[in-house]
C-alpha cells in the first residue's frame, strides 16, 4: 500500500507549543543542576565538584587554551572518522539493498563484524597505522560505519514496490528511481543509522584517545581523572555531552526539515 494513503496531518508534535517545551526543558536542567549541587555538598572528600567550581575550572581551561586545543584534536578525529563512515556506509548499504545477491552474500559478515566489539581491533590498528590521527580516525570509522551500513541496507530493502512500478511506468531510469524514490523512502532508517553512528563514533573518539597517543578530550579525561582534579574532569565530561547533544539535535533538525511532508497540516 502506498504511504500516500496514511491519514493526513497526523503530526508528531509534542502537546503544547515549542515555547512550553523549552520552559519545561530549562526547568529540568535547573533540577539537574540542583541535584548536582546537593551531591557536591554531601558526597565526602570532594569527589563531586560543585557547579561553581566546575564553571571556574572551565573558565580557567578556556583561558589557558587547553580546552580549545583538545576540542580541536577530538573534533578532527571525530569528524574525519564520521564523514568517512557516512561516505562509505550509505553507498555500501544502498548497494547491498539494491543488488539483492550482493546483499545476501555479504550481510551475514557485516552482521558478524557489527557484533564484534570494535575495540578488539585497536591493537591491530595501532600496529598498522601507528598512534596518530589516522589510527584514531579508523577506530571512529569502524564504530560509526556499521549502523550506517545496516540501516541504509534495511531502508533500501523496505522500498515501496508500488511506487517503483509507478516510476518505471513513466520511463524513469534506475538512477532516477534510486534518487527520487528509494533513497528518500529510506530516509527514516538512514537517520536512525546516522544517529547511532554519530553516538558510537563519539564513544570511539574517546576510546581512541585513551588507547593510542593520549590527546584531545579523551586524553584530558584520563589526565584529570587519574590526578583527581575533579572540577576539570567534569568540564571535559560536560564538553563531550555537549558535542553529543549538538550532533544528534542537528540530525534531528535535518530529519524534521526533510520529513515536513509527514507533519504538514491541511491548507
Amino acid at each position: 500500500m502506498a504511504r500516500s494513503d496514511t491519514a493526513p496531518g497526523r503530526g508528531r508534535r509534542p502537546p503544547g507549543g515549542a515555547a512550553t517545551l523549552t520552559v519545561l526543558r530549562l526547568g529540568f536542567l535547573a533540577l539537574l543542576i540542583l541535584l548536582w549541587w546537593l551531591a557536591s555538598a554531601n558526597v565526602p572528600r570532594g569527589i563531586i565538584p560543585s557547579p561553581a567550581a566546575t564553571t571556574m575550572a572551565a573558565a580557567q581551561l578556556w583561558s589557558e587554551g587547553r580546552l580549545q586545543t583538545a576540542l580541536g584534536q577530538s573534533l578532527a578525529v571525530y569528524g574525519t572518522g564520521l564523514l568517512a563512515a557516512i561516505a562509505v556506509g550509505i553507498p555500501l548499504g544502498a548497494l547491498m539493498g539494491a543488488v539483492r545477491i550482493f546483499g545476501r552474500t555479504v550481510d551475514l559478515f557485516v552482521f558478524a563484524l557489527a557484533a564484534t566489539p570494535r575495540v578488539a581491533f585497536i591493537p591491530l590498528i595501532i600496529l598498522l597505522l601507528g598512534l596518530g590521527i589516522e589510527a584514531k580516525a579508523v577506530i571512529v570509522f569502524l564504530g560509526a560505519v556499521m549502523p550506517i551500513i545496516l540501516n541504509t541496507y534495511a531502508g533500501v530493502l523496505a522500498r515501496d514496490a508500488d511506487l517503483i512500478e509507478m516510476a518505471r511506468s513513466t520511463g524513469a531510469s534506475p538512477v532516477r528511481i534510486a534518487i527520487h524514490i528509494v533513497l528518500p523512502g529510506a530516509l527514516p532508517f538512514l537517520v536512525v543509522g546516522l544517529r547511532l553512528g554519530a553516538t558510537i563514533g563519539l564513544i570511539n573518539t574517546v576510546v581512541a584517545e585513551l588507547y593510542t597517543a593520549v590527546t584531545g578530550l579523551g586524553g584530558l579525561l584520563a589526565l584529570y581523572g587519574n590526578t583527581f582534579r575533579m572540577a576539570e574532569y567534569f568540564v571535559i565530561v560536560l564538553a563531550l555531552a555537549m558535542i553529543g547533544v549538538i550532533v544528534t539535535e542537528g540530525l534531528r533538525l535535518i530529519e524534521a526539515r526533510l520529513s515536513r511532508w509527514q507533519t504538514a497540516e491541511r491548507p
Binding site: 500516500s4 494513503d5 508500488d162 511506487l163 509507478m166 511506468s169 513513466t170 527520487h180 530516509l187 509527514q262
Partner: peptide, 27 residues
C-alpha cells in the same frame, strides 16, 4: 517500452509522499 508514449494511472494513486503535487507531476 515504459513511458514511451504511454502513461498509467493506478488504483491506489501511487503518489510520491515526499514530493509536492507539482513535483509529483514533474517526476
Amino acid at each position: 517500452q515504459p513511458g514511451d508514449g504511454t502513461a498509467m494511472v493506478f488504483q491506489s494513486f501511487r503518489l510520491i509522499p515526499w514530493k509536492t503535487a507539482r513535483d509529483n507531476v514533474a517526476f
